[in-house]
Simulated scan of single mutants.
Amino acid sequence: MTTQREPGDGRLDPGLTAIMSERRHLINLAYRLLGSLADAEDVVQETYARWYALTPQQQDAIDSPGGWLTTVASRICLDLLGSARARRERYVGEWIPEPLPDRTEWINGRSGGNTVDPADRVTLDESINMAFLVVLEAMTPAERVAFILHDVFRYSFADIAEIVGRTPAACRQLASSARRRIRAPQVPATPAVQRTDLVRDFKQAWEAKDIDALIGLLDPDVTTIADGGGLASAELRPVEGSEQVARAFVEIAGRTPDLTILERTVNGQPGLVVQQEGVTVTVLAFDVAGDRIKHIWAVRNPEKLRPWT
């Protein structure tokens, strides 16, 4: 790589511009690998720290800075995924991936005097919907990295092999195994309009505390999982069955009558945001199978609600 460094002339180093242009790609990659925007941002920060720890001569010797950054970020994610099991064992209750709002709903923060908008950097496609991310959680770290890099970001197995430290053939097998996990629970996709209508009907039945209406919208084997992380009240175990789930939501509405329930896009899918005195306290993501709601994920951990509050 050849760069033109002209300190003091007020112009941005073109090499720096090229390096920083990779940031959106790295955020997208790390979020899908880790299921956490906060962790993804930490990974990207660490990746750039390692780049700037290189000497100018070392940087110039790298033919593809973007490829170097992707390799380093992927390896950091692989290490984090390897230690995630131990960290999850210490986590209070169930762990759910961090929900993302639609870019129009993002509430900007500030860092270093500049407006920061990660929603502009995370592409809201099928590979970030909550059901997809939850299935990824069941994969081994190597499966997850091989699958995301190949099937989502279209990296070759030869490139992936360098990242995970295995042969291209082994990486192909990892991605194939991960693909089977993704496909196993799939049912024919429900049209977007029908998903939106189901979530809207759920909201209205919940607000009306109508148990029968809620039961009619839920799959008999529906599962609800809540994530409070020990920082907000939440069921420590999944609630299963349409009647049990319906009663749980009606009880919540009865205990906290001042809740405001809003229809919002959550990880690219129809979802709900629950506010109390103007503050977001819960984000609900839904998985729809046919004409019923199959899964509900309720994120209440305030550390995972930064973009919403």
Rank of each mutant, 00 (worst) to 15 (best):
G82N: 09
L214K: 06
V199E: 01
T282F: 08
P7M: 07
P65A: 06
E6T: 15
M139N: 01
M139E: 04
S127M: 07
A49S: 13
W297S: 04
A226F: 00
V283W: 01
T71M: 07
V122C: 06
R23H: 11
K209F: 02
I225A: 11
V266T: 02
E6W: 11
T167F: 05
E105C: 04
G93M: 10
G82V: 00
G228V: 05
R90W: 08
A248H: 15
L16D: 15
R306E: 13
A253G: 12
E207A: 10
D42W: 09
A184V: 10
I182N: 02
E263C: 12
G229F: 06
Q58K: 11
D63T: 10
S64E: 13
A234S: 08
H150E: 01
S64D: 15
P7D: 06
P185D: 09
W297R: 04
A84R: 09
E89M: 15
D42S: 12
E162D: 14
R166W: 03
V187W: 08
D201G: 06
L100C: 08
E41I: 00
A253T: 13
V279R: 13
E162K: 08
V134F: 05
E137Q: 08
T3V: 13
T309G: 12
L217P: 04
A119M: 08
T55R: 12
A38K: 14
T70Q: 06
I293M: 00
P270T: 02
I128G: 05
C77K: 00
A38Y: 14
A213Y: 11
Q244F: 09
Q269T: 14
T2K: 13
R292N: 01
R87N: 11
L69W: 00
R110T: 15
T224N: 14
T265L: 09
Q194N: 10
V239A: 07
R181W: 05
S111A: 14
G290A: 11
T280G: 02
A248K: 12
R181D: 08
R172T: 04
K304C: 01
D159Q: 15
S177H: 14
L133H: 03
K209C: 10
T190K: 05
G66P: 07
S21E: 07
V245I: 09
Q59M: 10
L262Q: 11
V193D: 14
G66N: 10
L284H: 07
T140S: 05
D227K: 10
A289V: 06
L136P: 04
E277H: 14
L133R: 03
G35N: 08
A142L: 06
T47P: 03
C77Q: 01
L198C: 01
S176C: 02
Q45T: 14
D287G: 12
G254W: 04
